[in-house]
């Protein structure tokens, strides 16, 4: 244990780091209620009018719908493929088993432009062009690892004896899966799905390479900030996006913490 002045200094440092991490989030929250359309500090007054303006903006609503749709489909694909891969690695021994973890993490471990650029040239040269589906494929590819890691961690902590006991008691494989394995891994599955969705909902770099004419919500935000247009609406949208991701992510961490087994 460090000496008490050292502990005090470390605590102070920790506090400063927290301020550093959250001050910008607080700034975002304040600017969303800015009465003026000029983005300067301190804001001259509070108003809710930009919330209405943002909600009635068709582009924003279309982008939001597209993001939700792409995120849901990509998450579904990621849940199925990530869970399957986790089962394969946990239950079986096969050649190249160690390479699986490495391969699934590649899409997020490699710099974003590599994944984006690779998928872009693949789709373009394969002649499929860019569409809503290429966005979904890109998102699913880097979301798989999140589900995979969560489910695999849970499976590793789950004793094999539980499934064996179930089968000794006369349940067949399907019943064991439905009544024993699935309930035990359900929280990991839900947590993985939430984090995968959060990742998809927020992604910009890969999406800029795999989207054609479509705008996801992050692409709309990026375009608006870059051009300096519609900034009051941007303030509102980024605040809502932040708030909307905070809640499920906190939930996901609670689910991951509650291991059960």
């Amino acid at each position: 244990m460090p000496s008490s002045p050292a502990r005090f200094l470390l605590g102070l440092w920790a506090l400063l780091v927290l301020v550093f991490l959250f001050a910008p989030v607080a700034v975002i929250a304040l600017y969303a209620f800015n009465a003026s359309n000029v983005q300067s500090w301190p804001i001259p007054g509070f108003s809710l009018r930009w919330f209405g303006t943002a909600w009635s903006n068709r582009e924003i609503r279309a982008a939001l719908a597209l993001s939700l749709e792409a995120g849901l489909i990509a998450t579904t694909v990621a849940v199925v493929l990530g869970t399957a891969a986790a089962f394969a690695v946990n239950r079986f021994r096969f050649v190249g088993r160690e390479a699986v973890s490495f391969t699934v993490v590649l899409p997020i471990a490699l710099p974003g432009i590599i994944t984006g650029m690779a998928l872009n040239s693949f789709f373009v040269l394969a002649g499929t062009g860019l569409s809503f589906w290429t966005i979904v494929i890109g998102h699913a590819t880097f979301c798989i690892v999140v589900v995979y890691n969560n489910v695999l961690a849970r499976l590793r902590r789950m004793p094999a004896s539980l499934a064996e006991a179930s089968m000794d008691l006369g349940a067949d494989g399907w019943r064991t899966f439905r009544l024993v394995t699935l309930p035990l891994m359900s929280t990991a599955l839900v947590a993985g799905a939430i984090l995968a969705f959060a990742l998809s909902f927020d992604e910009v770099i890969v999406t800029t390479f795999t989207a054609g004419a479509q705008n996801t919500l992050p692409l709309w935000i990026f375009g608006a900030i870059r051009l300096g247009q519609r900034l009051p609406e941007v303030n509102v949208v980024v605040l809502l996006v932040t708030a909307v991701t905070f809640v499920p992510v906190l939930l996901a961490y609670r689910l991951m913490g509650r291991s059960g087994v």
């Binding site: 991490l21 700034v27 600017y31 300067s40 992050p218 941007v234 996006v241 905070f246 992510v249």
Partner: peptide
């Protein structure tokens, strides 16, 4: 939890926040 929370929140929102903070008439 507090450290991981910003990690999953909007990347663009956090970049944009600094643009507001560091701007000529920012915080």
């Amino acid at each position: 939890t507090l450290v991981l929370l910003p990690l999953w929140s909007s990347y663009l929102a956090r970049v944009y926040a600094w643009r507001l903070i560091l701007a000529h008439d920012g915080a």
